[in-house]
Design a protein around this nucleic acid. Sequence first.
DNA 1: TCTGGGGTCCTAGGACCC
DNA 2: TCTGGGGTCCTAGGACCC
Length: 426
Amino acid sequence: MYALVDINGAFVAMEMVFRPADRNKPAVVLSNGDGCIIAANKIAKQLNGFAMYAPAFQLEDVLNKNNVLRFSPNFELYVDMSRRFIKELSFFTDKVEVYSIDEAFLDLDIKNIDFTDYGQLIKRTILKNLDLSVGIGIAPTKALCKVASKIAKKFTERTNNVYVIDSEEKRVKALKWLPIGDVWGIGSGFAKKLLQLNIKNAYQFTQLTDSWVLKNMTVVGLRLKHELEGKSCLQLETIKEPKKAIGTEKAFGKLIADYELIKEATSSYVEYCAGKLRRQNSVASAIVVLLETNSFSTSDEQYYNRTVVSLPIASNNTTYLVKNAVDGLNRIFKNGLRYKRVGISLIGLYPDNSIQGNLFVNHNPKHSNLQKVIDQLNLKYEQDTIRLATSGLNKQLWESKAMLRSPRYTTRLNELLNISGDVLNR
DNA sequence: TCTGGGGTCCTAGGACCC
DNA sequence: TCTGGGGTCCTAGGACCC
């Protein structure tokens, strides 16, 4: 049996850990630039006229009228809380798959336990130690865990946040209950297609033939069907594989025409991603650079372009990667346009201990010691203590603002929670 | 005025190899 | 008359996830 443990309303819940006085208020977390609503607590979701993922400015009235608390995204906090969440889970089994920032699959291959009791124990532990509430679905396959977890969350009064699918009867009942569009792995595209065929729930989906599913939904769809039938096809991936791509693309705070500022942003993104690249001991063999105007504008000239810069020698050296990314930017940059976003992605990643040489390029590793020292300083003090001059000093001119970001309570010494001031006075 | 960001996997088709 | 067979690698596009 597997378990899926999932933090309820994760981002808002993580904010509320440090704001106990605000727990009964509606609250949302917004996307970069305070654009869209990406997370909300139950109270906010139940408000009249509320819509998840809507642009915040469209819901201005609803948010103001109900005094909804708004937060800029604070991923540094969420990532750290997530790390603590996984640590708690690892006390229950050493087979943990970190599935996302707020979810993990566990292998419950443990003899003589009552799964419901065990789930409740996990739930109580996370609540006690982290002040976060979770939902837990337990079943013989991962896809069925997802189904069980939905039931656990939907019918909290009956399930107390833990639901186990451990019989054929429960499986069929659960699948008949689950609308096709809510099935893990069925997105809006396939949901639409299946509804046209009068497939309305997960159970009906499992009644299709294997060959139809294979032909129309590839092997991915077929695996899902088997999983829902109770035949496990998706293994627990407990070993964290290195990423195959590391990228960043973000909207600017305002539209930007100035090449120098866009170059700064590009350099700064590469610097950030190259750090992640080195931390997973990889090198990149190519860089994607993309540039985009504001697609929502009806008056501005529209432009979208991307290019792939192949590197003669794979590398994880910031200076070298930045230089090549800027070459890419130069290829696609057009004067006279107002840009909304630049993005870079390091691709073709492989381990840094097996770099393929190049007969025709003189590889000069003289920067690698410098790079190490910079990384050490940035680790010891703070991110960006030392950075490239090409990443510039004008961040405030292009970076989107995060006016509503809460303190990074658990990762910055100068943003620690002040108990008497921050909590008791609230 | 304001409209998210960061990933994975699969397939088809085109180019190439011997 | 008859025009192979078995591969790899890359890219674009489409699907999905949180």
